[in-house]
């Protein structure tokens, strides 16, 4: 039976202020990394360059969150690690609104096929990345 993968667990809660601070700091870092990745992977305003950065951050983030959640099921960590990394950094590093906006832009630029391909590929690859990360996290979590 797999443990639930909800963002919050029923662990003993750290001080609320510390948890909110961890979420805010993580959110600032995650957003900065996402926008910075967008600047690095700047392939121009035509598909597929338009969506490459968002796709990359979403897939990396989905894998990393899966790995983190898997690891947390087998190895106890600092109670602020989850709010900081899972809710803050990875929650903010990945994005859904940009994906939807880019989907609309692809629709306007190239019709339904690229937009549908982008949405479908994001979700299928994202789910696969999350599952792979989860498996690795559960398997390797107790090693060190």
């Amino acid at each position: 039976m797999s443990p639930p993968l909800a963002v919050r667990s029923r662990r003993p809660a750290p001080a609320p202020a510390a948890e909110w601070l961890a979420i805010a700091a993580g959110g600032a870092i995650g957003a900065t990394l996402r926008v910075a990745l967008g600047r690095i992977v700047d392939l121009g305003d035509a598909s597929p360059g338009l969506v490459a950065a968002t796709l990359a951050s979403n897939l990396i983030g989905a894998f990393a969150l899966g790995f983190l959640l898997g690891r947390l099921t087998v190895r106890p960590t600092h109670p602020l690690l989850r709010p900081f990394l899972a809710v803050g950094v990875l929650g903010s590093f990945t994005t859904w609104s940009t994906l939807v906006a880019e989907g609309h832009r692809l629709l306007a630029l190239g019709g339904a096929a690229p937009a549908l391909l982008y949405g479908f590929a994001s979700l299928v690859l994202g789910l696969a990345a999350a599952r792979a990360g989860l498996g690795l996290g559960r398997a390797g979590g107790g090693a060190t």
Binding site: S2, G61, T95, W96, L127
Partner: peptide, 28 residues
């Protein structure tokens, strides 16, 4: 735009939790 669109909207929405939620449903 940097504050609201890139920062706030990008971070308010999330793809990693979306995937983890969905995988959680599928595993159960």
């Amino acid at each position: 735009r940097a504050l609201l669109a890139l920062g706030a909207c990008g971070s308010l929405t999330t793809f990693s939790t979306l995937c983890a939620d969905a995988i959680g449903f599928l595993e159960r």
